[in-house]
Amino acid sequence: MLDKIRLENILFLDIETVPEEADFNALTAVKQKLFDLKTQYQRKEEYTPEEFYERAGIWAEFGKIICISVGYFIIKGDIRNFRVTSFYGEERKILVDFSNLLETHFNQPQHVLCGHNAKEFDFPYIARRMIINQVAIPNKLNLFGKKPWEVPHLDTLELWKFGDYKHYTSLKLLTNVLGIPSPKDDIDGSEVAHTYYLEKDIDRIIIYCEKDTIAVAQILLRLKRQDLLIPEEIIHI
């Protein structure tokens, strides 16, 4: 089935998220209590809600998107290019611009979205933040009424599981075992909030996000038994 999907019909993506505020104390008293309740089982007795807040970006109710990177193949004869670009800045604008891309260029039945662990994280996170920001959910993210085989999503983690639902493999581990250059050669996900709020270095985060997007494309090439991208084939726009 995977071999029947043309590379040109896939939009690869990755998102970076952070807590909605730089500091727990910036939340309203009500939001602080809700975060306490939401995370009580994850925290157990090891952390206070304030200490745990640095991880708030993993929940769409307490975090926000600061970057969406996308990549897609352009193949003409023997020439293959992979074009990468990013949406960043104010969250609502990120979501509107990303939605416009889907509705304008990736809106046909043959088009699919692809990420790593994206069915569990990226896709639902984007959809939830769109609702919060009052942005219309594009068809490719709106799963209401769709049968499982009608959902236009690929997930490299799911493909690697081969039906083993107990198994989780990180992007860093999977690129290692498949002989793909690691995208985690600078920061990792746990450092994004610090880089964003304290270092105020969005450019570093964009580079990190784009590397993850490229890595997802490389994994799919491996799964399709095709040659990996070389640097000359990757175009940042």
Rank of each mutant, 00 (worst) to 15 (best):
F73I: 00
L34H: 11
E103K: 14
R225G: 04
D227E: 14
Y47G: 04
Y47F: 15
I187K: 01
H194V: 05
L223H: 06
L27K: 04
P49K: 04
L102A: 09
G63V: 03
T85D: 00
K4I: 13
I180G: 07
H236I: 13
G163T: 04
F24E: 02
V70W: 05
T195P: 06
D3V: 05
L34D: 13
V151Y: 00
P183W: 00
Y125S: 04
L11G: 09
F162W: 03
A215R: 05
L34W: 02
E61T: 10
L159Y: 03
C67H: 04
P231R: 02
R129L: 07
D97W: 02
E46V: 14
P181T: 09
E21N: 12
D97I: 02
F12L: 06
V192S: 09
F106V: 00
Y125M: 05
I207H: 12
E51S: 06
T48Q: 06
R92I: 02
R129I: 10
L101H: 10
I131P: 05
D97R: 12
E61N: 13
C67I: 01
L7M: 14
I75Q: 11
E199A: 13
E45R: 11
E50A: 15
F106A: 06
M1D: 09
L173P: 00
T85M: 09
Y208S: 09
F98V: 08
D3K: 15
A127L: 11
L27Y: 01
K38S: 12
A215C: 06
E233F: 04
I66Q: 00
L2E: 03
F121C: 09
G89E: 03
I131G: 06
V112N: 02
F73C: 01
Y165D: 11
I205M: 05
V216C: 13
Q218M: 01
E103L: 11
E233S: 14
L159M: 15
S170W: 02
I65Q: 03
Y72E: 07
I219N: 04
H236C: 00
K93W: 00
E120A: 15
I65V: 15
M1R: 07
T48H: 01
E20C: 14
F121W: 04
K33T: 12
D23V: 06
T17A: 12
D78T: 12
F144M: 14
S86T: 05
L157A: 01
K166L: 09
F123K: 09
I137Q: 08
K166N: 15
L228Q: 09
Y208L: 06
I234E: 05
Q108E: 10
N117A: 14
P148F: 06
E16G: 11
A215Q: 01
I131K: 13
K211V: 01
L221S: 10
I202V: 15
